[in-house]
Design a protein around this nucleic acid. Structure first.
Lengths: 226, 226
DNA sequence: CCAGACCGTCACCAAATTGTAACCAAAATA
DNA sequence: TATTTTGGTTACAATTTGGTGACGGTCTGG
């Protein structure tokens, strides 16, 4: 999936130049030449990154940036500001505006491409790493309470999801049935340890091909393998 | 594209005066001299702004304002109220009516033009983005306390609206009942209660087709899906 | 003061989930 | 090979969970 980038600048030649280079590099590009158009496009199809010139007629880049930050859907889109004056930099990157990077004109295309690449990478890493576990085609998203195989979610019950999560979080290490009972069921007492087996079966059944990640270690317990 | 403005006043001379000045300033103007006519015109071709006199025969400006706010297509049109008494101002601008600005008669034409310009500018720039959540046909406008489906507003109570808002703001992430109690009801205590469920039911009922966004995650809580 | 809106609870019900036991197959052991 | 141990599988009853309708209390605008 090609990342979508919105380029905003009031000078058509500048836009064209950037657009050409970005497309060369494999991005999908949309453009705008004034604030209203920029906001409209940013909202109708939220881009993965925005390149935004500060100097614009009517609504300037600062305004646009601030506005985008206030809107839920666009508040996290990385923004690279293009600015003429070095003096503006602090404001651009500071809390008030919260742009993610800047370039002073004139800038080299290579430089712009590098910054874009960096920001896109950061976005993908940061967002996913924290609460999202990924093992090839299998992904587990804790806050959403969704586990999926190739983006197709499984229909897991609460216990099954927790069991899978606990195992995946300790991927590689064998977990005894007692450990699982403690961590998944939060029982002090001794419920039948065969309960774990039954849940493992159900989990495997629902996971289908993804159940290859669930190993039985005979005489010990279960293990999640990558 | 010239902004369209609807002027409503029962005194023909007043209407004429305003109309003349607005046209001078490059606006397209339509007029009405009573409530029924005003509503009809406002609906048939939604204006970009309405100048509305409070004192009108039969249906007064308050009524019209309220009615316009309830109608999907006109609920966001900025309204400037013309009022004789300073005492009415609170009510005009408050939540009940939600006019966007007011002028006490007599007023200078220059003043009116300034207010109009300000409101129209706001409308184009910030208004839509600021605190407006959009999920396909469903939109939630926090400051206006208005949630709507294809621009048709729901008739939600305060609690229902807040519940919807909190869920939508954390779209995707499951919220436990305890979390919802804390964030929507601002309870500290974790009393066992079915209150959340009941409100979800009422909310779903009112949302109709839009309730497809509201997922139940059995054993965990509720989730707003996009 | 009253009617109506709004809200928190409760009781009930259907459905989903879950723990357990009984049974079977495979692996380990002798 | 026979026996024992371990884990998989099936079935089922008990429990949990959430949806729903109803009720009474409170607040508010008229």
């Amino acid at each position: 999936m090609k990342p979508r980038i919105l380029v905003v600048d009031d000078e058509p030649e500048a836009v064209e130049l950037i657009e050409f280079n970005l497309k060369q590099s494999g991005y999908t590009v949309s453009t705008a030449t004034d604030g209203a158009e920029a906001l409209k496009k940013a909202r109708s199809q939220v881009p993965d990154l925005i390149v935004l010139d500060v100097m614009l007629p009517e609504m300037d880049g600062f305004e646009i940036c601030k506005t985008l930050r206030l809107d839920a859907s666009t508040s996290r889109v990385p923004i690279i500001m293009l600015t003429a004056k070095a003096a503006e930099i602090d404001r651009v990157l500071g809390l008030e505006l919260g742009a993610d990077d800047y370039l002073t004109k004139p800038f080299s295309t290579r430089e712009l491409l590098l910054r874009i690449k960096k920001l896109l990478a950061r976005g993908q890493a940061g967002e996913l790493s924290e609460n999202l576990l990924r093992f090839g085609d299998l992904s587990i998203d804790t806050p959403r309470h969704l586990a999926s195989w190739r983006e197709k979610p499984f229909d897991l019950t609460a216990t099954e999801f927790k069991l899978l999560t606990v195992l995946a979080q300790r991927a590689g290490r064998v977990q005894s049935r007692d450990q699982l009972l403690r961590d998944v069921w939060e029982y002090d007492s001794l419920i039948d340890t065969r309960t774990v087996d039954t849940h493992m079966r159900r989990l495997r059944e629902k996971l289908g091909p993804a159940s290859k990640h669930l190993d039985t270690v005979r005489g010990v317990g279960y293990r999640f393998v990558e």
